[in-house]
Amino acid sequence: MILLCGIPSEPPMARVLARVEQLGLPHLFFNQRHFKSAHIAYELRGGTLTGTLVLEGREYALEDIRGVYTRLMDEQLLPELRGESPGSEAHRHCARLHEVLRSWCELAPCRVVNRNRPMESNASKPYQAQLIRESGFLIPETLITNDPEQVLDFRERKGRIVFKSISGVRSIVRQLQEEDLTRLHRIRWCPVQFQEFIDGTNIRVHVVGNEVFATAITTDVTDYRYARKQGASHLEFEPVELPEELAERCVCLAATLELPLAGIDLKRDSEGRVFCFEVNPSPAFSYFEENAGQPISEAIARYLWWGAAESRNRRDDR
């Protein structure tokens, strides 16, 4: 069976759940908000992992789970814990439950989308950029510094530059404008990543196993994810077919990062060069399903049940 972990109303999770049900695949749902009635325990003995999961009063063998899709929110923010003291039984049970669930996901022999350890590559953008370059992608010329003078020199050389966080915390990508220079001294307290601005077409590639779903995004703002906030007058999504070599390179990059599901941010410039900015290990793909009709949630459901090769063959036979 398939195990889904998270909040059922959260858009990406809701879409995967709907596809799993449409395909008639046996499944369980661990709703984080129902943590009080959930229990999990496992043991590893002689190389064999066994255990049980209790949901809504029913017990299931962990060995029967063949695929896991997890989008767990920070359990400390669950509404059911509001008003509970930090040391309460509810807090302790919730924390322990999630700790054991996450550790089981790291060890489980089934397919897990995605395991925690590989997802940590996104916690450091500079580290991930090295892995991206080693996979054969171009990356924009980058400066990471807390020295305002270096930023000014970099801007003088490149003309247009953007800045963003170097951590895994999502930040809005912005172009460095004249009005930003008056507060540039603030970076002395925290290094910031600056990159040359690449003019061209944004392409978000979702990799699911060995399937590739590419979407071209055209807009008049720097960061299409925050188009409305940045005052975009134009935002358009279009499914596109990547050249075979580029599609294969995206699959290889996701595999190198050990991510069965990955959101890869590319940009193709006027000369046809393709740059890679980063790889999102927990992409909110529902945005692209809604705006470009990409069947990503169905691919995830098929991958969880049939695996990569079988999933592609079944899709090709349809």
Score class of each variant (00 low, 15 high):
M1N: 04
M1R: 02
L3K: 00
L4C: 08
I7E: 01
E10D: 10
E10K: 13
V16D: 06
L17V: 13
F30Q: 02
K36R: 10
Y42R: 01
R45D: 02
L53V: 04
A61I: 08
V68R: 00
V68H: 01
Y69D: 07
P79F: 05
E80R: 10
E84M: 09
S88R: 09
A108R: 10
R111I: 12
E120F: 07
N122T: 03
A123F: 08
Q128W: 04
A129L: 14
Q130Y: 08
G136Q: 11
E141P: 09
T142Y: 07
L143A: 06
T145Q: 04
L152Y: 04
R155Q: 08
E156I: 07
E156R: 14
R157N: 10
F163K: 07
V169Y: 04
Q175W: 13
L176W: 06
V192I: 14
Q193H: 03
Q195S: 10
F197P: 07
I198V: 14
D199M: 09
D199Q: 14
I203P: 06
V207E: 11
V212D: 11
F213W: 14
V221M: 09
A227E: 05
S233M: 09
F237K: 03
L242Q: 12
L242M: 13
P243N: 13
L261K: 02
R268A: 13
G272A: 10
P281R: 01
A292L: 05
P295S: 04
I296F: 05
A301W: 03
W305Y: 14
A309C: 12
A309M: 14
N313H: 14
